[in-house]
Nucleic acid binder design. Structure first.
Lengths: 277, 277
DNA sequence: AACGATTTGTTCGTATGTATC
DNA sequence: TGATACATACGAACAAATCGT
């Protein structure tokens, strides 16, 4: 009934955290102190702390101690909005700025390559399709916030949308750019939201500690043109513990209104190493 | 540059999994075998396995061994749809059945209690508001799939919607019931999607192993009436590794169409212990 | 049903490395 | 530079779950 020792210690500490006896930012006590307090070995105490880490309640800092994690104010990304507008252009910047945080995005890294199986299917194209990928890293208030990669069929470039293969921002956003250039209008899109563990590159970029609370949210947006065919796919990856997504359907009160279709915000600086990407 | 020993072992095993040398369901090898293969101590090997567990790549079964996790086909829940329809009635059942899986839901457990701070704010009510809570557990193909709790202001009952405080299913769904009974029409709703660690009850219900890959997705739906005021909040919790959410905006091709507003499906059985809840 | 072999889970002890102040 | 605190690694013993005989 009582369960293993490390679990008892962990739940006792968890109760103290939830009751507020241990406040966010407080030190849990050193491993030595916990050993003596609970009369357990160091490894058992460490197992208890690991249990708390996995549940996101505490974090350890080498050389300093173990601390109760401060509550994070998540950034809310609204998935619904005007289908005529993209998410890769000024929208993102204005949406973030509206929450009084400071957005930054790297210049896109552009590559041309063969589509994977899932991408070819998402674009309803053959397995040998060539795509343009535009990859961007985004920051809010200086902390890494999302990795975003958009995929466009190469034939859009052949039809004249040469801006897609230039490693510079399209100030209007690529969705607007494609409408102006090729007359392709995004009449709708479909997002899917999944949660998965990060790969090494993501864990590194988001500075996810190697210990536990590791999960990222992946959103995939497929944009459809007036002919009902998909013409772009955007994959965005976010750290799970700093983000919330919102969906508005029907009539919702004004304070939750979907983001504006056009930006009026000022130009926003890009990250310091933008030239490198 | 090489990093710790357990990490090297873990990444070597991960590579074998991703390359297919180790297929889903395969045994990784016993701890003793891994000790000898990598010339490391048992605890170091166990640390490597823990790293893989946290990333969802393997699972351990006491007395049996460590196995590569089979790929899970996520169930897709569409968040967009007809605001006139709820998600707690026949919609859920028909949506699941449409994917050729077998849905089951417990009868609701009904309670009347004081609203917490966040709930009072979500309902735009005073801190001392009384609410009706209707809690349901849902299963798909016999495995626990979601925990759902809906909150309604108690004054809806006083105005005549007595069905809300009865522990039986409202076959039409509560949204439709409220429209028929009180003329309250849900003209819109707002969903928020967040990821967090499970509490004990959730870990128990979803049978989340105590070891690692523990995360749940919480969706909160606030329904708004024609007057723009919220009249219900539904909180749903899902295991993160078995679920995907979809959002359709604008015109999307038919195969992704939002769920129907009304169900034509047959009556579906409830879980065995439905009488107990 | 009982037992033994196998395999993972828990707990302790100890030593050394690395980060921080 | 030293002291403190967490990270890594090894060894050992017993417990608990599983499976085949």
């Amino acid at each position: 009934m009582v369960g293993p020792r490390y679990r008892q210690i962990a739940e006792d500490l968890r109760d103290q955290i939830e009751l507020g006896t241990l406040a966010p930012g407080d030190q849990l006590g050193t491993e030595l102190e916990l050993q003596e307090r609970y009369n357990a070995s160091r490894n058992t105490v460490r197992d208890a702390v690991k249990w708390l880490i996995i549940r996101g309640l505490v974090e350890t800092r080498p050389g300093q101690g173990t601390f109760v994690r401060p509550e994070i104010v998540p950034f809310v990304t609204t998935l619904t909005g005007d289908p005529q507008a993209g998410r890769d252009g000024p929208i993102y910047l204005s949406e973030v700025a509206a929450s009084r945080r400071t957005p930054m995005g790297s210049h896109p890294r552009v590559e041309v390559r063969r589509a994977d199986a899932w991408l070819a299917e998402a674009l309803r194209a053959g397995a040998d399709t060539t795509v343009v990928t535009r990859h961007q890293r985004r920051f809010i208030d200086g902390t890494p916030w999302s990795l975003q990669t958009s995929y466009y069929p190469m034939n859009l470039v052949e039809r004249g949308a040469v801006g897609l293969i230039q490693a510079s921002d399209l100030e209007e956003g690529t969705v607007e750019y494609l409408r102006q250039k090729l007359g392709i209008s995004q009449v709708g899109y479909r997002d899917t939201v999944t949660v998965r563990p990060p790969d090494n590159a993501e864990a590194d970029f988001f500075r996810l500690p190697d210990d536990g609370r590791v999960a990222v949210i992946e959103t995939r947006r497929t944009g459809f043109g007036a002919d009902g065919a998909p013409f772009r796919v955007t994959v965005s990856v976010y750290p799970a513990d700093r983000n919330t997504f919102a969906v508005n359907v029907g009539v919702v009160p004004g304070e939750f209104a979907d983001p504006p279709a056009a930006s009026t915000g000022p130009a926003v600086g890009t990250e310091a190493d933008a030239g490198r990407v």
